[in-house]
């Protein structure tokens, strides 16, 4: 546990269930809430020798995050350190904006995020958008570039061919 306490935010591993920056914000909020509850319990029972406050029930994302990084919330110093590091993590994680034509399910997002974490950066998260005009595919924005893999972009690219075919059709008539 002493090794894990020494981890900095850039060394944290994000589990597949943590997909977006919003999920990271939720992790931070839950950590702060748990820390407040445990601190209150300790203050309330400070006169009792050997009292160990029980950790409240945690969400799946936080449990995954703690187990993925081998962290515990027993020590208040560790908790403070984890909160501080997660706060920094929230501000520094690389974000990829992905806009879909339909609502994206969590499983697909996890797959995509895993691909980014394996390929580009292990702490990558996505910001999901919705634009039905894309028809299909994804409109992706990395920090400095835009990658339009949507059906709309393909149709736009094929407009010249469509006009050519219509002209051919007219000539045939």
């Amino acid at each position: 546990m002493s090794d894990s306490a020494a981890k900095t935010h850039d060394q944290y591993v994000l589990p597949p269930s943590v997909v977006s920056r919003l999920d990271v914000s939720r992790l931070l909020s839950e950590l702060e809430r748990v820390d407040n509850e445990l601190t209150s319990e300790q203050i309330r029972h400070k006169d009792e020798d050997g009292y160990q406050p029980s950790v409240p029930t945690l969400s799946g994302q936080l449990s995954d995050f703690l187990s993925a990084n081998d962290l515990t919330l027993d020590n208040d110093h560790q908790r403070s350190d984890i909160i501080s590091q997660v706060r920094q993590l929230k501000d520094t994680v690389p974000v990829v904006h992905m806009t879909f034509a339909t609502q994206a399910d969590h499983e697909s997002l996890s797959t995509l995020v895993s691909w980014f974490r394996e390929t580009a950066h292990p702490q990558t998260v996505v910001a999901v958008g919705l634009q039905p005009g894309l028809v299909a595919g994804v409109y992706m924005r990395t920090p400095n570039k835009v990658h339009d893999f949507s059906m709309r972009a393909r149709l736009k690219g094929s407009r010249g061919a469509l006009v050519g075919q219509l002209e051919g059709l007219r000539g045939g008539q």
Binding site: A101, T102, A104, D105, P132, A136
Partner: peptide, 8 residues
């Protein structure tokens, strides 16, 4: 084609 295919 809108809404015909889900992301999966």
């Amino acid at each position: 084609l809108g809404d015909q295919y889900d992301v999966k």
